[in-house]
Nucleic acid binder design. Structure first.
Lengths: 218, 218
DNA sequence: ACGGGGCCAGTGGTCGGACCAGCGATGGCC
DNA sequence: GGCCATCGCTGGTCCGACCACTGGCCCCGT
């Protein structure tokens, strides 16, 4: 079962204390270490690549994109039912959310600001309670989207919501990420408050860059 | 490449007119029909299973879970065609095209470059003949999009294509605009050629800003 | 001494064949 | 007539070999 190989791989990564950007051993060696054939190992690696955990480069090696515990078991089940294509989806989401932040800075009203402040506070409360802050995070991004007053943008982001929801959940389950996200939201909120559109755009883009895949050095 | 096998599989499903719940041919037969080894076919199937398109049952067969056509286009397309002149559409298109240029700079192959060069030449020829250069313009943007290797992005831009087509036509009918567009395409092509992703993104954004008279992010 | 170009080891990618394991239906045996 | 073994079909795994790409090393020419 390729799931068992995946589990072995995660265990291996944890044991070797590997982080994002690190290179895994060659396929052949990895296969022998995990006591499976290279075929089965490649199946598992293919699955991990689709899930966006790993980047495989011909003639170069296998590179870890995110920490192994980013995808928690329950989410792995979801993965099977929805359609991911995670790296591609992450890029698009990043571009669209950045556009939303840009538009929000230009067109936000006072009630939009109030909604964002409320969302940040909610997330803070959640984090203080020890949860991931998923609700507050979602509320914030929705508030920004609403403030951008762009119907087409709203529609497209809604369309890819189920996928990006999964990204957010995986990201927020990382230790320390909720706190970092709250801080990032604060900065974005400030930029929108003073109508610094380009700054808001960049901050949002950076914020999402951290939650998404990391490109290993060439 | 497992992606090409995936494409073949989707084509096969469409050709055979298969719907959710239908069973696909056995792996061995499928592999021979698609002219790939069973190993590669299994890689593609593993990926499709992770994506939730397919259910594989040991000793039973491979079953299609959802139709291969993706769910996003219809809604957004309706809106895009209904309000093509909407500034919102221009903003979104700008952000997405900029993302395409960015991705193209990172992932373009040599054939992608060839397609872009051909598109630029075609547009030049059209402009020299006194026409608007609409065909070459479209070809260029499609080539950039193809080079970006982002399925989600392709889907979304396809969805809003009809609306943005109208924008492009209006823009190119302005005196002097075709020449300016050709020059802009040249710059973008150069940036993609040398893999300057951020520069390509900015150039594309600026290019569309001028054609659409709309000002989204850098 | 320096630069460039070709060679080579290592890596992922593909292939074909063989065998193992789960499922269902068929048919013989009781 | 009913139960169960068997067989054929399916996916799952393994192996060994070869192909294709990458990058660095080394040798040769200048």
């Amino acid at each position: 079962m390729y799931a068992s190989v995946q589990a072995k791989l995660r265990a291996f990564v944890r044991q070797e204390n590997l982080g994002p950007g690190d290179r895994l051993p060659p396929e052949r060696q990895l296969a022998s270490q995990l006591a499976v054939s290279r075929t089965s190992l490649r199946q598992a690696l293919t699955a991990l690549r689709v899930e966006g955990l790993v980047d495989i480069r011909h003639g170069h090696g296998i590179f870890l994109l995110r920490a192994a515990d980013d995808t928690i078991p329950p989410i792995a089940a979801d993965l099977a039912t929805a359609h991911p294509e995670l790296p591609a989806l992450g890029e698009v989401r990043n571009a669209l959310e950045a556009l939303a932040a840009w538009g929000a800075a230009l067109r936000r009203g006072d009630d939009d600001l109030a909604a964002m402040v409320a969302a940040v506070r909610e997330m803070e409360q959640e984090v203080a309670d020890g949860t991931t802050g998923l609700r507050g995070d979602r509320a914030f991004h929705r508030a920004v989207l609403a403030a951008a007053c762009n119907e087409v943008l709203t529609m497209l982001l809604d369309a890819i919501e189920e996928g990006s929801e999964r990204i957010a959940r995986a990201s927020l389950s990382r230790p320390g990420q909720p706190e970092r996200s709250v801080a990032a939201h604060r900065l974005i909120l400030d930029a929108i408050l003073v109508r610094e559109a380009d700054l808001a755009r960049r901050l949002m883009s950076d914020h999402l860059e951290l939650t998404g895949a990391i490109s290993p050095p060439p």
